[in-house]
Design a protein around this nucleic acid. Structure first.
Lengths: 341, 341
DNA sequence: TTGTACGCGTTATCAA
DNA sequence: TTGATAACGCGTACAA
């Protein structure tokens, strides 16, 4: 903390009371313009910077929002953060940023610290290791507004902003089906995570609605990363023998990149032999060859909406709890081709 | 801010003084274990969360660091932020994050707000529109530690952590020269920015040390982005006629991507006809075809070192001001080939 | 071991 | 228009 020049010093310097200084600085009407001028001058001369801590203590309001994300170096999350920052800035709030590194304890300690710093509200994307929701229940019970985003906890009285994973997965699967594909592999995410479940469910539903029987060997868990996609694709090649899928639907773009690599190594071509789609519109999706057809998640908008909702909760205790779904968007590029009949 | 349970409430609840509660909670030795037990129980029951504002106000210490970056959605900066976060976490500091969107006014207001929140120190990467350093001078004079990173202001009493752009540019130019290239184009950044200047200087120095005469028409300002690289490369094709460069050195990876596109469109091949190198090791550099040889900037480490230095300044007022240079690293991939003799 | 008084910097309230 | 005092929540210093 820096050197201390307080309104008291200014008051003494000018031989007036601290209240007059306070009023002058807060542009209250009832202060002589001449006095105000002297105060402003003294403030400049002494290099006075108001102390928000004292203000916050007295007013029980910090104009600060706590943000907790599992990872910062993840394009989805930093775009979300960017959206949050934008709203916060425009509404006069500051951000306290923490990342949990997907660790439940670290997340809990972050929440506790933020609460003790008396942030006005909390924006959190829950680490996937979190099992115990009691800290959130306590915080919410204490009256601190919480809005979850992407990774939500439902049923504990907090609003939530998320992306419609299920519909997105369904839409991109339907796209493949519309191209004539019937034998579609799925590289899915861990079924312990809501996202992994939702995307697989969307995939299955699309098949079902089109009367395509799901093939067990074509659904392989790959995880969300590139290496997993690569291995999963190789497994499929190994297991299905000659009856190759004509298309592959991956749970996330990096997994799709891995799958593309495996396909190329098998001497096959994307999309001529096998079409591939991903999910998330990673920054690399348009640069790989062939560029990847995928589902865009409007991360920035998730941040905007979450921050808006939180501030609404902060500024109006009666703001209704809500589940906000941001629509995904199909991005068609060059990794798919009509299936041969 | 949440509902208020203070140590005073706990004291009343238990019929003891607030000091006993305070001592019990801070694990001071001189408090009866039985009393401590009762306090802990009451704390849990009432859902008490300590108020750091009050502590900070009294102790003039917030355990909070202010961070200001020009952009969040930039891989360099969010890796830096990630490094900062890691050190802050391990040392018990919180982060207040702001982005200036490269706007001088917004940056100034961020600094002012952070100062008024009484952060213990400031970590800032200066927006390239900033001309007036007086706010920084004022803050530093007031005794608040400031460490600049990447975009620094020198000579005003603050430490600085940056990457050795000049050496990096020189090294990658030397790499091209070692492959036998003599006719090397340079797509440079704006010469108003320190980074643009440093990288061009490194390029020129490498030529000079190898007795290669710089060719004016081969040095074209492209800016740091892809579109600029594309246009700049097309300009070069237009202007030099038959005497094409055998290699291109771009100020940043995106510019290199643009140049590669222009080269391909001209019916030439990378690296067979023209070698290309970039700078920054963008996440896409290894995915483009051919993968891009570039200079890696250890962004995460910049964050680590900057945060460490700042905390050192915070915790020891006599910590020496310092300019810390993080070494870049040549990353050789497949976008270069030996020049034909 | 426990309690009292005061200060941190500011605003709200009420009085002058 | 201006000022004195209490309050915000906590810890330090000193006293009991």
């Amino acid at each position: 903390m820096s050197k201390r020049v307080s309104i008291k010093n200014i008051a003494e310097e000018l031989g007036i009371s601290i209240m007059t200084v306070s009023r002058a600085l807060n542009n209250r009407p009832n202060v002589d313009e001449k006095t105000r001028g002297r105060v402003v001058e003294a403030v400049r001369r002494l290099g006075y910077i108001p102390n928000s801590l004292a203000v916050s203590l007295a007013q029980r309001k910090t104009y600060t929002i706590g943000v907790v994300v599992p990872e910062i170096t993840n394009s989805f999350f930093y775009h979300v953060i960017s959206g949050i920052e934008e709203i916060a800035y425009s509404q006069g709030y500051q951000l306290m940023l923490n990342h949990s590194a997907e660790d439940a304890n670290r997340e809990m300690s972050a929440i506790q610290t933020l609460a003790s710093k008396r942030v006005d509200g909390l924006l959190v994307s829950v680490a996937n290791t979190v099992k115990d929701y009691s800290i959130y229940k306590q915080i919410i019970k204490l009256g601190m507004p919480v809005v979850f985003f992407d990774r939500c906890i439902s049923g504990i009285g907090a609003s939530c902003v998320r992306v419609n994973d299920m519909e997105g997965a369904k839409a991109i699967t339907n796209y493949l089906i519309s191209l004539g594909h019937k034998r579609i592999a799925n590289l899915c995410g861990p079924q312990t995570s809501p996202i992994g479940r939702a995307r697989l469910e969307g995939f299955k539903e699309a098949l079902k609605e089109n009367n395509i029987k799901p093939v067990k060997e074509l659904v392989v868990e790959s995880g969300l990363r590139s290496a997993g996609g690569y291995e999963a694709m190789k497994n499929i090649f190994r297991q299905v023998g000659g009856k190759l899928p004509t298309a592959v639907c991956a749970v996330a773009d990096p997994a799709a990149f891995g799958a593309m690599k495996a396909i190329k190594e098998a001497g096959l071509k994307v999309p001529d032999d096998i079409s591939v789609v991903g999910f998330s519109d990673d920054i690399r999706a348009q640069l790989v060859f062939p560029s990847l057809t995928t589902v865009r998640q409007p991360a920035y908008e998730v941040g905007l909406r979450a921050a808006q909702k939180l501030i609404a909760h902060i500024e109006d205790k009666d703001e209704a709890e809500e589940e906000i779904i941001i629509k995904t968007e199909l991005v068609i590029r060059q990794s798919c081709k009509a299936a041969e009949r």
